[in-house]
Every structure is written in structure tokens, then in C-alpha cells.
């Protein structure tokens, strides 16, 4: 085909579709909690692992995880990456650190961004805390936690968090 004279190489068809999503029961509780500066996880019952953010079901058992449990907004970095790739829908200045944070009281890593931290100081095991949006900007969106930042607490040894890394 490439030897066609004056071949039309490309046309542009803009596609715009609007969707009206449902958060679902589990995520609704989590998102409402954010408006009150609370991080709520979910579990299938007492003594069971706390999933943050809630996923609707405990993936190991596929049991409905409907019981909401508040966890701390402090946690430990279990792994991280320094991102230097630009993208239109990312609101952070490059480079920035994304990290999996194991919140105190949770049993699942929570993915977010680290700020106020020198790039060469980021490490697995470091302690961090959520930095919340101003009260009048708290919404039903994960961006109500603007980012996580380091706090002055001793590192957690890798062996204690390895299971979540």
C-alpha cells in the first residue's frame, strides 16, 4: 500500500465519550472519610486484614469487605520510584517520588506521592505522614491527601515490611 501515489497517511477522528461512574459501596465509605481527614479501610470482619483503599472484596477470599475501619494517616514506605516522565494528567513537578505506603493499621500498601523529601534521602522503611488539603478543599477524591511527607521517626527494618514490598 505504501507505494500508492498521494496515499492518505493519517486522518484524525476526535473521540469524546462521557461516563457516569458509580463509586460503589466500599469506595463510597473511603471517599466520604477523606472529607473528614480520615483514612478508612475495609475488612470482611474482625481480625481480618484491613484493605486500603477498599476494593469491595478481600481478593484472597472474594468475601465482601464491607466493615469500615479507620487507619492512621502515618505509615512506612515499602517501595518507591522516582518519576521523571512527563504526562498531561499528572499534577506534580518532575522529578517526584511515588511510593507504596503501608499505613499503620492497614494490611495493604497504599499508592501515592512523596513530597518535601530530598531525592537521595528516599528509602525503603522511612516513616511518612499524609499532608491533607486545606479543610475547605477536602473532597471525595484521593487528592484530598495532597501527598505524603517524611516525619521524624526511626526507620522500620525491611524484614518487618518485606511481606508488603
Amino acid at each position: 500500500m505504501s507505494d500508492l501515489p498521494n496515499a492518505l497517511k493519517s486522518i484524525v477522528t476526535p473521540v469524546r465519550l462521557e461516563y457516569d461512574h458509580s463509586a460503589g459501596a466500599a469506595a463510597t465509605g473511603f471517599l466520604r472519610g477523606l472529607t473528614q481527614k480520615k483514612i478508612l479501610g475495609a475488612r470482611t470482619g474482625p481480625g481480618e486484614p484491613v484493605l486500603v483503599p477498599p476494593r469491595g472484596a478481600d481478593p484472597r477470599t472474594s468475601e465482601l469487605a464491607a466493615e469500615l475501619v479507620e487507619v492512621s494517616d502515618k505509615g512506612t514506605v515499602v517501595t518507591y520510584s522516582i518519576v521523571r516522565v512527563p504526562s498531561d494528567n499528572i499534577p506534580f513537578e518532575l522529578p517526584y517520588v511515588c511510593a507504596t505506603v503501608l499505613l499503620d493499621g492497614a494490611n495493604l500498601g497504599f499508592f501515592h506521592v512523596l513530597q518535601n523529601c530530598a531525592l537521595d534521602e528516599v528509602r525503603i522503611g522511612m516513616r511518612v505522614q499524609a499532608h491533607w488539603a486545606p479543610d475547605d478543599q477536602l473532597t471525595e477524591n484521593v487528592s484530598s491527601i495532597r501527598y505524603f511527607e517524611p516525619i521524624d521517626e526511626p526507620d522500620v527494618p525491611f524484614e518487618q515490611i518485606e511481606e508488603y514490598a
Partner: peptide, 25 residues
């Protein structure tokens, strides 16, 4: 119109089908 998300819709349906099959998952 469902206000539940896909996992929440699916979970009880799968559970019911497995239960009435008499098989363990």
C-alpha cells in the same frame, strides 16, 4: 441502573452460581 461497582455486582452472582453448583470453588 446499578450504584454498585462491577466487583460488587459480580461477587454475589458468582457466589450464587458456585454455591448452587454444589462444587467447591
Amino acid at each position: 441502573r446499578e450504584d454498585r461497582n462491577e466487583v460488587e455486582i459480580l461477587l454475589p452472582v458468582v457466589k450464587a452460581a458456585v454455591a448452587s453448583s454444589q462444587l467447591e470453588r
